[in-house]
Structures are given as structure tokens and as C-alpha cells.
Write a protein that binds this DNA or RNA. Structure first.
Lengths: 247, 247
DNA sequence: CGACCGATTGAATGACATCAAACTAGGTGG
DNA sequence: CCACCTAGTTTGATGTCATTCAATCGGTCG
């Protein structure tokens, strides 16, 4: 439980570590990997539990809405979008996921995924299969503890982000950009200069705004010298102003 | 794990059961109570774990935003609202809670509550203290299993409801009413005739709409013979039409 | 009965969507 | 290598819908 536990797995992970990948200790699966790895004597064991570092191409689908729950995923590098409601109405983007984040925990209870997950760029993932999940849960209380903590964290995070949808358009976009900035910073990536891996259309869909509105807002923020926007490259010139807009 | 487990706790709970209370087997704490109770030989033991049937008055606060996490609550009867952001901006209603539902799970990870919970009417609750939660977790894997399932369920539920905020106003209200209807039905309460325990202002705040808009929409739905609205009493006259509006 | 809070209704303003069109970047094939 | 093509993006004009401001109504409680 200590935060200063022997970084057993961390080292193991890092021997394959490439520059654009998030380190294991910044990964939401870290607690889980650590617990699983500490229990088993040799590190080879871990590879049987967590399938590590599969690569996926841009546009690849991790799982589809409705598909039975089979695994949870941790993002090692790259980014993904969740979307749902493809049938009668146009699909809606419900979330963006970046390196270090866990996907699929909400399917544990339902038994099936309630949204589809698509890679926004070439990415790599770790995968924890459902049967392994169950086994670990029965054997290790500490593992379940980790799972509970992660779920609880996701729940409170989602509650916060759910609120921005009721705000005025420029607040929504500002909040969105600040959220991205914070998440990049947590991953020890540049927080004020970054590339958007998603289209304006995806952003609009996610924020519940028209593509045109997103475009206009970017132009407006550019005009106000709050942002520097070049295609999908964003530089936050005036973070204070952006925070003021987001309130 | 079987759904047909001996209803040990159910009976125990019911001996104090009053007409407006949700039965134990419809309570989100049920799994937890069942697990905790089955483990201990006598039922007296359960009362040491879960403090049952405290009553609270309308306007009473279970906990305040920012307060350290000390317990999770199950609603036995009545209803509550969650609200947050009281400082610089006007408070926002983030959720409504009805009998059988669990409150506070998202504070496990954060260690403190991120919103305040207020009783909308005279209500009664069961309370599971944090230290008991920890103890149970360490002792009983099945308990953690229950917690994980509940958390996962809450997560996917929240994802769905977060989407309605992007819809057009009458869709939002229709979806809200249908959601209430479903939740009442799950509690074996009348699903098409019910009393709103929250004000129009709370509804508007929750849906991100002005009070006046809510009022107008109610009048409009009344006009269209979809609803019968008398103050806070609602009767759904045409469920199909309401579903069509909600899409 | 009067005061107050919640709810309703109307009119004017404003924000965002929609429609329509031009533009750009990135990729493809000649 | 360039012309072309397409998907993504930007910009303008117009309409719709929800907010805001303002006034009134109704119910509840002292």
C-alpha cells in the first residue's frame, strides 16, 4: 500500500521503455501491475497476467459497443476516443483517453461494453483479460483495493467533467483545453504546447457543440492572443486568461 | 453470489419495515449487507457494521463538499440532492438520489467528498462507516466484489446521464422524467404518477436550464396531453409520446 | 390575512445551430 | 513532381431556441 514500495515492476517495464510511452509508474494499471508482480516471485509471471505493449494503428477499434466484456485496457502511448449510440442517432463521443489511463472498468458490472473505443493515432496498450481479472480478484485483496480506488477516482472525475456540458460554449472549450493541459502535465509531457490527436468534429461532438462553433472559438481565442493555433498544434499563450474564461 | 441466497438480512430488515421504505433486497447496500450478515453468525452483528435507519429531516445535510470521507450512505426512504461549487459560482445540482441508492462511493479514492448531499424531504438512511468499510474489505473478498460491481454500475450509469446535457431542452426534461419513472418502477413504486420532491429550480439547475424554461416545458407537455402537471404531482399520460421526445 | 417563496407567463435579447460556400492540408495517381 | 482529390477546417449569413428581465399568480405558513 505504501507509495514507496520497491519499484519492481517499474524497472521491468522500463527496460522496453521508448520515448513516447508513459512510464509504468504514471500508468493507472501501475498499482495493479505492482500488486500482481509482487505476489508472484518472478517477473515472467507478470507477462501471463498482463499482456503488455500491443500496438494498434490509427482507427483501430479496441472493442465495440455491446460486445461482451472481455478485458480492461491501459494506454501505454497514443490516444483513443469512446463513442456510443451508433444505431438510430449519429454517434456521440463520450470521452478521450490518453496514455496511462484505464478503459473498460465500467463494463465489469454490465458484462458488456456500452461504448466503442477507437485509436486516434498509432498507439500501444496493455491488456488485462477478464478471467485474469477475476482470478486476481479472488486471490489478492490488495488487487481489489486498487480496482476500487481506480473506479472511485474515475467516478468522481466523470462527475466533474459532466458539469462542463452545461456551461456556455467558450467555457466548455477552455475547460476542455485546460483539462488536456493538466492531463499532459500529469504524464510529464509539455502542458502548454501540444498536438490535438482528435478532429474538430470529435471535439465538437464531445462538447455538444457544432464543428463550426469549435472552429470559431479557436479563431476567437487566437485573436485574443490566448492561444496559438496551427491546425492541430495548440500553444497556450495565456493560461491565466484561459482559466478566467473557464472560470 | 446466487440471487437466491437465503434472505437472512431481508427478514431482519423487514421486521421494522414501514410502507414508504424500500425493501432491503431493492437496496444497493443489499449485497453488502447480505455478505456482511452471512459471515457473522448472529444478526446482532450486522447492526455493528451498518448503522441502520437513521432518520433525517428535509434540508438536512448528510455531508458537505470538502469534508473528509467518513461513511457511505444507503437511502432507505425519501430523496436527496447532490450539489457542488458553492464558493465563487452559484451551486450546481449534480444528481438526485432515491431510496435504495448508495451515496459517497466516489469519495473513497479522493478521501473527501466532492459535493454536498441534502435531503429533499424527510428521509431515512443506513450508514456504513469508513473504518467498517476498510475492515470488511480486508476480511471479505466478496464484499469488495460487491463494491466493485456497484462502482462499475454507477460509472456506466453516470456516463449515460452525462450525455443528456447536450440534447435540446425538451429532450432533456423528457429523459429526466423517464429516468425518474424507471427508477421508481425499480423500487416498486408507481412509475407514471409520482410527486417530484425537488423544486423546478433544482431540476433546471440539474439539467442546465433556466427555471423559466422548465416551467414552460411542463406547460407545453401539459398542453400536448403528454403529462398532467399539478404543482409537483406528475402523471405521465402518454409514455410513448414522452419517449419519442426523449428519442 | 398578509408576506414570502416558488411557479408561471410574456417580450426582448443573445447564443448557438444550420445552411452554404471557400479554403487548406495531406494523400494519390498520372 | 505536379495536378488533383478528398476530408477536414474556416468563414459568413440567417434562423431557432433558450436565456434574461419583468410582471403576475398561487400556495404555504406565520
Amino acid at each position: 500500500m505504501s507509495k514507496h514500495a520497491k519499484p519492481l515492476i517499474l524497472d521491468h517495464c522500463n527496460h522496453k521503455h521508448t520515448s513516447n510511452e508513459v512510464a509504468c509508474d504514471l500508468c493507472a494499471l501501475y498499482g495493479i501491475c505492482r500488486v500482481a508482480g509482487l505476489e508472484s516471485d518472478d517477473l515472467e509471471q507478470l507477462d501471463k497476467v498482463v499482456k503488455r505493449r500491443e500496438t494498434v494503428k490509427r482507427g483501430a477499434v479496441l472493442f465495440e459497443e455491446g460486445e461482451p466484456f472481455h478485458a480492461i485496457y491501459a494506454i501505454k502511448s497514443g490516444s483513443f476516443k469512446s463513442s456510443c449510440g451508433s444505431q438510430d442517432k449519429r454517434p456521440r463521443v463520450t470521452a478521450f483517453h490518453f496514455s496511462g489511463e484505464l478503459i473498460g472498468l465500467d463494463a465489469i458490472q454490465a458484462g458488456h461494453y456500452t461504448y466503442s473505443v477507437t485509436a486516434l493515432e498509432a498507439s500501444s496498450i496493455c491488456r488485462l483479460e477478464f478471467d485474469q481479472l477475476e482470478q486476481l480478484g479472488e486471490q489478492l485483496p490488495a488487487f481489489q483495493q486498487e480496482l476500487i480506488a481506480t473506479l472511485s477516482g474515475q467516478l468522481s472525475q466523470l462527475q466533474i467533467t459532466a458539469l462542463i456540458n452545461q456551461q456556455i460554449a467558450n467555457k466548455r472549450l477552455a475547460t476542455f483545453l485546460l483539462d488536456l493541459s493538466v492531463r499532459f502535465a500529469e504524464r510529464e509531457m509539455p502542458a502548454s504546447t501540444f498536438r490535438l490527436s482528435m478532429s474538430r468534429s470529435d471535439i465538437g461532438n464531445y462538447l455538444g457543440l457544432a464543428v463550426e462553433t469549435i472552429s470559431r472559438l479557436f479563431s476567437q481565442l487566437q485573436e485574443q492572443k490566448v492561444l496559438d493555433v496551427k491546425n492541430r498544434m495548440i500553444e497556450i499563450l495565456d493560461p491565466a486568461a484561459l482559466r478566467k474564461i473557464a472560470l
